[in-house]
């Protein structure tokens, strides 16, 4: 399997040199192969979002190296990485431009990382394609192409954001608690859609979640961040045989007696 992402000795420290110095990532080494779907768990503040922000380029990298498909992207700005990396944020408001219509948002995403010109943003053949794509969401959105996206519900928007992230196949997709703001039913719908899109397009993915069952059910690899390091990294059968109690037990073993109760993980 060809390697898609290589993270070498990644460090991130906030407010360096002050009393508030916060060493959030302390040497992350990770290799992802094509088609890897990695779920990430860890307590609040463990550095999960920081890790994704570093990969996407919204946080400049202080130490370490990130290599995507053989290219060193450590110093590239967000806009340059966007061609190869797509994201879905936790807040459904974050992923779309609310005052643009559904089709305009989709059109924007279809040009992710490409040169934009003075030519019509939404063409009629695009519309047909968008309709087909929206139809597979089963949310009755295929006839609302011209609705302002701000008028849709959070779940509908999140589903569209997911679609936007995959309209142009990315080398890597980053999902940061993308179902956390949704009600349980919608959350299941969006998770199923996530799995469908990822497996159909053979995407390489990172998915941060606080839902241990989701972390175990989805993906082929699970990692846990703790105090800025990868504490648990399970793939293949080890991952398949996981249960929530087993995972808790593993966590205790790795982290030691410093753990007061389950809330740290489940928070």
């Amino acid at each position: 399997m060809p390697e898609v992402l290589k993270i070498k000795n990644l460090h991130q420290t906030f407010e360096q040199g002050t009393v508030n110095e916060n060493r959030v990532l302390r040497g992350i080494d990770l290799n992802l192969e094509a088609g890897d779907f990695v779920t990430i768990i860890g307590s609040n503040g463990a550095g999960k979002s920081t890790l994704l922000n570093s990969i996407a380029g919204t946080l400049p990298i202080q130490e370490g190296q990130i290599i995507l498909k053989g290219t060193d992207i450590t110093k590239l700005p967000v806009t340059k990485r966007a061609k190869n990396i797509s994201r879905v944020f936790q807040d459904p408001k974050m992923g779309t431009a609310v005052r643009l219509t559904v089709e305009e948002n989709l059109a924007l995403a279809m040009k992710r990382g490409q040169h934009r010109r003075f030519r019509p943003g939404v063409k009629s053949q695009d519309r047909k394609f968008f309709k087909k794509q929206l139809a597979q969401l089963n949310l009755n959105l295929e006839n609302r192409l011209e609705t302002e996206i701000g008028l849709l519900s959070g779940g509908q928007r999140q589903a569209i954001t997911l679609l936007m992230a995959t309209l142009q196949r990315p080398d890597l997709i980053l999902l940061d608690e993308h179902t956390a703001a949704l009600d349980p039913q919608t959350s299941i719908t969006v998770m199923q859609l996530t799995e469908k899109l990822i497996s159909e397009q053979h995407l390489t993915a990172f998915m941060v979640t606080h839902n241990m069952e989701d972390a175990i059910r989805y993906g082929n690899r699970l990692i846990m961040l703790h105090q800025g390091r990868v504490e648990i990294d399970l793939a293949g059968e080890d991952k398949q045989n996981l249960t929530v109690p087993k995972l808790m037990e593993l966590f205790q073993k790795h982290v030691g007696s410093g753990l007061e109760d389950d809330t740290i993980l489940l928070a």
């Binding site: 806009t79 992923g95 431009a97 934009r116």
Partner: peptide, 12 residues
């Protein structure tokens, strides 16, 4: 509308 989303979609 949403600078963060725009950047994530490669808009300068």
């Amino acid at each position: 509308d949403n600078p963060q989303m725009s950047a994530a979609n490669g808009i300068k």
